[in-house]
Amino acid sequence: MGVIKPIAAETALIDALDGATGWLAQLREATRVQGLPTRRHEMWKWSDLRRAAGEITSAGQITVTGAADGVLEPADGETVELSVSASAGASAAALSVVVKSGRTVTLVERYRAEAGSLGNIHLDIEIEDGARLERICIQDEAEEGILVASSSIDLAVNAHLNQVAFSFGGKLVRNETHVLHAGEHSEAHLHGVYLLDEGRHNDYTTSVHHTGPGGITHQLVKGAVTAHARGVFQGKFKVDRAAQLTDAKMTHRALMLDDRAEIDAKPELEIYADNVQCAHGNAIGTLDETALFYMRQRGIPLVQARALLIESYLAEPLDFISDEALREQLRERLRDRLRAIS
């Protein structure tokens, strides 16, 4: 099997990662052998990264602040603010996070990607026995940039993960989260919100692999997409035979704000245990015309009525954020964005 002929973005990325180790070395090798993922890869069929990166010709820089030496081991009760910023060109970074046994930690990740960037970042997260992690991924400043933020989360027994991903998309933004779920009183909550204006693309891909019994996974993802924008949701629950009594629920709901919007969703259950409660629901709809008329009849102008309806629709997953100030801040971001696009 021959190696593919690389495009400029791939060459830049391969060169930039010369001598890399760990996940970065794997990324380099995968890019060298297969190139960047295209729609021919099942996991990327709605997010053609290679095509999106077509105009990138040089290496860029990805800057991570808040994690010295790429390793984080937050103290109990600590809130870590992590900033990830990708400049124009192709770049990649990786870091690891360990939440030690019994600790409760909050990780607020803020991502920026400049126009012409292809930023890749990977987080290796370990949540030890009895530890709790709340993770808020804010991807609202990618504009014309490409950003792929992936994570592998190892969830031990009695551990708790609460993740909320918030995105306005970008030229192509992908949040890919993999959870290895040990069960035995451990819980994963994987929520998300996306609001996409013209030209934006957002992809929220999650997979949860239940390996032990009695684990809980709950997921609520909501989105709204305007004309010429694309929202992608791929959710997978895999439940091993050993993971009896797993309770896993996945819900994805999205609004098409225009006939020319595109939303692609693939909910997937792969279950080998026979005594489990697993469900998925996926609903794509439009704004409720009756509610719009009701609001307008009360005097609320159309633009304001639409914004209020969309905001209240999208705000639901934000309720899972414990920090009230952060929750309100993101709701405010939604409100501003809705004002700007309507």
């Binding site: 409720d288 509610a291 009701y294 005097g299 102008p301 629709y313």
Partner: peptide, 20 residues
Amino acid sequence: PVEIPGVPTLIFLKEALNAQ
């Protein structure tokens, strides 16, 4: 009367009154 999930009645009424 139409249900509007996520919009508290008081907020809705205040928005309506002030918009008018």
